[in-house]
Design a binder for these strands. Structure first.
Lengths: 157, 157
DNA sequence: CAAGGATTGACAGGTTCCTGTCGAATTGAC
DNA sequence: GTCAATTCGACAGGAACCTGTCAATCCTTG
């Protein structure tokens, strides 16, 4: 009822758009990765360890997710043979997630599909519009990150 | 590795930004609604039935979610007393979700917090940047929606 | 080198979304 | 008016995220 100021209204619009786009992107990601036997979440994990093995916690930090979420995905990937846990010279308990041949093969397949798709979608949007969107969303994200950090609590993030 | 064309790269950047912003927005929404005893998902459902009672299926359509997801949230809201199921003159089995006094009170509280928050965040961003972001994200969403619709399957969406 | 703090993997449990299926109620075609 | 298609709520099960907690393993400090 109480009319929001223009800025606030625009910000709220952005929220709604982002929610919807996020849902569609997940759907698209699942569709892209399904033929390789993957899902969005699993594909993303594979992508992180593509440039080198890493611990579950390190992958989680890279992805901005909770350690435990990535653990679940990683275990699933391992039991499907896309990934193996290899010894970590720097840590006895924290083994390294490493791509198997099958994992690398699946990843390459998804990446090819992704490239074609991103190309098609990216080309269908005015370049200026696209880069403005990226910049605006990034700016909003940065503000929000600051806004959400009251003070870095001691333990776990 | 294989370098994506510029458009595709920008599109991929947008995806990453949207994923991150989405996560932060959910976090912010939960923080805004927690003092009222709600969460993002529950708040959104209350918002839909604020302008009048509706069936679970109708709410789901409005929100763009599966019927079953909203059912779960609605049941939780009902057992917490924010909502009740009232008789539906047009349908014997499909009762209407309706706000209770407590539900309306909680919703108003969250809306007030949301307004203050959106105002603060919205004002901290250059207006041009913000509207460009909204426009760009909307455009991307529309393309993606088209891209994802192969043909409207018969039953359930 | 010994103690304290931080990080890690494991496990438990919860939320919010999904798909799939079922029987009941409504609606539409004939 | 009857019969088929659709819509609805209920229930089962699963995916992907979360928080909280524990013991084991670092790592830093003194």
């Amino acid at each position: 009822m109480s009319p929001l100021p223009r800025d606030a209204a625009a910000f709220t619009d952005l929220i709604l758009e982002v929610f919807q786009l996020n849902g569609l992107l997940l759907q698209a990601g699942d569709r892209l990765s399904a033929p390789a036997g993957l899902t969005s979440a699993r594909w993303q994990v594979l992508g992180v360890i593509d440039h080198g093995p890493a611990t579950v916690a390190a992958v989680a930090r890279t992805m901005g997710l909770a350690r435990q979420s990535v653990q679940q995905t990683a275990d699933a990937l391992a039991s499907d043979g896309f990934v193996t846990y290899v010894e970590n010279p720097h840590h006895q308990r924290a083994k390294l997630l490493s791509l198997t041949a099958a994992g690398r093969r699946a990843l390459r397949k998804v990446e090819a599909a992704h490239a074609a798709w991103a190309n098609r979608l990216g080309a269908s949007l005015a370049p200026g519009l696209l880069s403005a969107a990226v910049e605006g969303v990034r700016e909003a994200r940065l503000r929000l990150e600051k806004d959400l950090t009251p003070e870095d609590g001691a333990h776990e993030t």
